[in-house]
């Protein structure tokens, strides 16, 4: 009885966390209209979570594209279909790798800094101080970061994809000698704007919402200690990664 209780305790705690996070989401969504008063905060946050993530997103995009070009050219050559390299790179990127890899990088780069920042605000009573100055921290601190994530993630994913295509082109065409016209014409023949590009954008909108929700929730509810903030930051990366990959599966199943 006691052992069973102990075994279920983490499960119950996990469910309670999910429930609390869901309630938090409702509060944040409720605060979004009020946060429009602090539009400047949202702009500032788009800069911090979006523009400041550009370097890592662009570098990684370039390398992911290059390695995809290399691998796919090699593999497809065995089937005499090297001409399809560009197509497969583009499809893999737009549908899966672009949104997912960007979301994972975003969780590590921007999610952690959101958690640490909000957590420290909690620990040093800054959130309480705002409440006392009749400023709702959900509207002033949380909602702008949430909105910034939803806005920045799809843009980052597009930038990631564009650089990855460039990287793949560099490897497949400039290095391995695939014909330039073949690379592009096969791609444009098979890649569809709506089912491939736009569905990928929807995915990254959802990922942006999920990652920033987790990051702000972890920061907002962190125990006000340095250890608490440290654990909250770790949890942001772990939970974001799991939820992004699980949600990716669900969305793929529904969008296909």
């Amino acid at each position: 009885m006691n052992a069973a209780h102990r075994a279920f305790a983490p499960l119950a705690a996990g469910l309670a966390q999910i429930g609390a996070c869901g309630r938090f989401l409702l509060h944040v969504l409720g605060a979004v209209p009020r946060s429009l008063r602090y539009l400047r905060e949202t702009v500032r946050q788009v800069f911090f979570v979006g523009a400041m993530s550009l370097v890592i997103i662009m570098t990684c995009g370039m390398f992911v594209g290059a390695v995809l070009g290399l691998q796919l050219y090699d593999v497809l050559s065995r089937f005499g279909s090297a001409a399809m390299s560009g197509t497969v790179v583009a499809l893999a990127l737009y549908r899966e790798l672009g949104p997912v890899v960007t979301a994972l990088l975003f969780a590590g780069r921007a999610g952690t800094s959101i958690t640490a920042e909000v957590g420290l605000m909690r620990a040093t009573d800054q959130l309480d101080a705002m409440e006392m100055m009749a400023v709702d921290p959900l509207a002033y601190v949380i909602a702008p970061r949430f909105l910034a994530g939803v806005i920045a993630m799809p843009l980052l994913a597009c930038i990631f994809n564009a650089l990855a295509i460039l990287g793949a082109h560099l490897v497949a065409v400039s290095w391995l000698g695939l014909d330039n016209g073949t690379f592009w014409s096969n791609m444009t023949a098979s890649v569809d704007l709506w089912t491939d590009v736009v569905n990928g954008v929807w995915k990254s909108v959802a990922f942006g919402a999920v990652v920033t929700l987790i990051a702000t929730f972890q920061g907002y509810t962190t125990p006000p200690t340095s250890e608490g903030v440290a654990y909250a930051t770790t949890r942001t990366v772990v939970f974001s990664s799991i939820v992004v990959l699980a949600l990716d599966f669900v969305m793929t199943a529904f969008l296909m």
Partner: peptide
């Protein structure tokens, strides 16, 4: 992405 790499 939309205009150069798709059927558009």
């Amino acid at each position: 992405l939309a205009t150069q790499t798709t059927s558009i």
